[in-house]
Amino acid sequence: MADILVYSDLLTNAKELAYAGKGFAAALGMGISAAALGPNADADAAELGAYGADRVFVGKDPALEGLQTDVVAEALAQIAKEAGAEYVIIGSTRRGKELAGRLAQKLGAAAVTDAGSVVVEGSDLVASHFSYGGATVAKEKVNTPIKVFAVMPKTFEVGDVVAGAGTVVTPSLSLTPSAVKLVETKPKEGAAVNLDAADRLVCIGRGLAKKEDLPMVESLCAALGAEMGCTKSLCDWEWLSENRLVGLSGTKAKPTLYLSCGISGQVQHTVGIGTSKIIVAINKDDKAPIFAFADYGLVGDIYAVVPALTEALKKK
């Protein structure tokens, strides 16, 4: 029986893949396996079993410490063969996306990365990803015997968990240490933020004239109970950390309320906000493309509207 093999370097994401993978496997008449790799593999394996994997391949080879792409790709290629995988579905996290190309090349597979949806069509899984910089969504079917999909975190929701772990399998891995050495890790500047989880999100763009004006936006965030995100230039200029980037190369946010301030609405940004429940845009240019994406549009200068909104929210 062919198999679906799932893997992610992030456990929460791996659980989503195991859960969704079980559904795909049932629809396609396949088995569902997961891979748990690295120092935490044993603990992860139990969770992945509970989330749907019939078999969990546990790899604890010392070469996997640090999860370097070349070693993880080799391990997954070996596991995919042992599991008889037809589909290898991995998380399109930063590591996962890098992994996808190398793994696909090892497996002689075509791959779809950054997939925002995977669905069963007939006897196949087909995946969709942004194309033309986000202007369109391309839906692709893979025709190689083994197929690799890298799926963006949070694409799949997780439902009820059935206790009862999958069978743990110890694959016979033959790995060599990575050609890349991790010299050191250092903390990023700026406090950790998790825009993924934000229920309300205020995003600021190049309409902000200077970094010193950020407190104006921070006040609005505080009054609204929102996290602050931004467009790419603000990260490139290091006004805000890259954890706050929303869009194609950053977070695909799913807030209830998204409010943009001084953002034009170029597609690389708007692909990150499309699933927001309500979208509000403030821009001084009444022709800004962001208004086409918005539920509510306010034409105005952010230096007038943002403080006014902060005050109005405080008085409410």
Binding site: K139, K141, D286
Partner: peptide, 17 residues
């Protein structure tokens, strides 16, 4: 790979100014 379709997504927004 076969590209089955490549289309712009439809946005359903209120568009109230």
């Amino acid at each position: 790979k076969a590209v089955l379709s490549n289309l712009a997504e439809e946005q359903q927004r209120k568009n109230v100014m």
